[in-house]
Design a protein around this nucleic acid. Structure first.
Lengths: 289, 289
DNA sequence: TAAATAGTGTCTCTAAGACAATATCTC
DNA sequence: GAGATATTGTCTTAGAGACACTATTTA
């Protein structure tokens, strides 16, 4: 433990004498794609309400990108990790604690922020809609939950996958067209390239596309959907969450077989439905032997 | 396009007047887990050579962590992305261009570098061994390719997955014990936690564990193994690459069925083998209709 | 009893696991 | 021909897709 370097210093002595050099340093922000699933209010007679996937966006009140919509986020502080920064911002923005949070990756194009050299470490966050005290449509900063569409477009001549991103809230409609660059060449372009973009700030269309991709991926492998529902839920609700994220309908029987090992049934049922009540389930905490 | 903010400035005027604030900024490095697959030289008589998964490490010549082994990497510059920085460093370190490179994520524990606030954006890199001009065992900086082991340990009482990481090169043997923290709580601990660590610098054991996890994941879903082989290869070689990354043997028939759609056969065969020659294959570039 | 959703049964098809049989080269 | 690897065949099992059927509640 008392190794000495070429100047004869021990590690303690070296660190005591250390002065950081003058290498240029970027600002680093943690930005978040915060998703939730809400009931669509258009419920007629005694039908079940549908579900909608929604993303939290904030209208920019200053330059640059004044008037456009951006992901919530903020700068990372020296005493926290990027993940802790994201959790802190999220608590400030939505008042929700203990959120499912996952790192998506760094977006570091030197020109992504016209003001200065700012990298963004993007995160995916999932919240049960019932836990959010809606500061959406607030006063000072205009925040809103946008309905999300993310659908394949016919690929171009180059054969690369293209996706249309659509975000709607009230009368506002934002849209972007993105192209997926193959993995393995981050030196050229990282992941998604924005071909069209109306209404989103910075490179946030890219981040949202990455988030949707990740979300769809993890739905099939992991057990991520539970974070978008309350503790007790019906299997139909769970299936609706899957469908609204994947953007396509699933078969009931197959779906139930697939998620059966992930849930535990309770003895409670839904009430006051205009039809046969549904059993409530909880997430089964894993028990790998 | 001539929106004015609360001070009456247009975006051009705002940007011209913009001065970056005094928020503290971290240094950001791109570090890389560079893997390759080599032939084990212990070939007896006329047996096929085995394969070994190897990772590039560099012995630290100064404090901190003097004498311990670290991943190659360096600071990101203001005119490049983190991916471009990784590619640049890799070219400097190994002389290899056009490498398969993929972002793993940010490691940002404020204490990870005792000198200062330094985040690391980790990358996974895969190189065909034949392309590397071995600067391993060089003079100035001691670089070497370490054989990699990454195997499950019996989980602790808490039920969390534990992995043993082993790295060997010549007489040198480094080892670490890591525990996988469940996803969704990066605010508490990001991914892996180091329980034991002998010989590796910084939090690089974590990064290597993440890289191995990712590598194994992508083997099964993606088509990542090809980057560790020359253009033309035998199916046995491809299977060996899979086996050495997954750390377990695979069944020949099932393996061939699985990768059949990913390869294209050539009319060439191996020569000078002490047994029946094997057909050479190439990667099939996708053709999704 | 009609409307609506809840929940189950079953047939088919595909893919993976397991193992065995045959083929082809060099020494 | 012996030794080694290459390549293919097939039986079994597990899971997904597809579709149809039965069950239960409320208005």
């Amino acid at each position: 433990m008392q190794l000495r370097d070429k100047d004869g210093l021990t590690e303690q002595e070296f660190l005591a004498a250390y002065r950081p050099g003058d290498y240029p340093r970027p600002s680093v922000a943690s930005d978040m794609a915060v998703f939730t699933v809400t009931n669509s209010d258009a419920e007629s007679y005694r039908r079940l309400p549908g579900k909608e996937l929604r993303l939290l966006l904030i209208e920019r009140g200053g330059h640059p990108f004044l008037g456009r919509w951006a992901l919530p986020g903020g700068f990372v502080r020296p005493n926290e990790t990027v993940g802790q920064a994201a959790a802190r911002e999220l608590l400030e923005e939505t008042g929700v604690d203990q959120v499912y949070l996952e790192q998506l990756g760094v977006f570091s194009d030197p020109c992504r922020d016209p003001r200065a050299w700012v990298m963004s470490c993007a995160h995916l966050a999932l919240i049960d809609a019932r836990r959010v005290e809606v500061r959406a449509g607030d006063d000072a900063r205009n925040a809103a939950w946008f309905r999300v569409l993310f659908q394949p477009e016919p690929p171009a001549e180059n054969g690369l996958r293209r996706m249309r991103l659509g975000l709607c809230c009230g009368g506002i409609s934002l849209t972007a067209l993105l192209e997926r660059r193959p993995a393995g060449r981050p030196a050229d372009a990282e992941g998604w390239v924005i071909l069209e973009n109306s209404g989103l700030a910075f490179d946030h269309a890219k981040i949202i596309a990455s988030a949707m991709d990740r979300l769809r991926d993890e739905l099939e492998t992991g057990a991520v959907a539970f974070h978008l529902l309350p503790d007790a839920f019906t299997l139909t609700e769970l299936q609706q969450v899957y469908e609204v994220i994947l953007g396509r309908p699933l078969l009931k029987a197959a779906f139930r077989r697939k998620i059966a090992p992930l849930v535990r049934e309770t003895n409670r049922y839904t009430e006051n439905a205009g039809h046969r009540p549904s059993r409530l389930y909880r997430r089964r905490q894993e028990e790998k032997p």
